[in-house]
């Protein structure tokens, strides 16, 4: 089970989407009371981040 979870996490991260539960846990632990993105918002944010504008856009390989 744990292995499958890691596999899914790995597959998602391959396309630039980190673990949502971890993000929620991080917000709760370090920024309590502040707004937390819903899964939908989180996903849109990550898609824009990966392929979007600005210097953060990751380079592509040959």
């Amino acid at each position: 089970m744990r292995f499958l979870h890691k596999l899914a996490e790995g597959a998602r991260l391959m396309v630039g989407v980190p673990d949502y539960d971890r993000y929620v846990a991080h917000r709760a632990a370090h920024h309590p009371g502040e707004p937390v993105m819903t899964l939908k918002e989180f996903h849109r944010d990550r898609v824009d981040r990966r392929y979007g504008t600005g210097p953060g856009a990751p380079p592509r390989c040959c």
Binding site: E9, L13, P18, V24, A25, G56
Partner: peptide, 14 residues
């Protein structure tokens, strides 16, 4: 939790 995330080394390898 978004860009900077300590990640398991196997997952990050992928």
């Amino acid at each position: 939790g978004l860009d900077y995330v300590p990640t398991h080394k196997g997952v990050l390898f992928g």
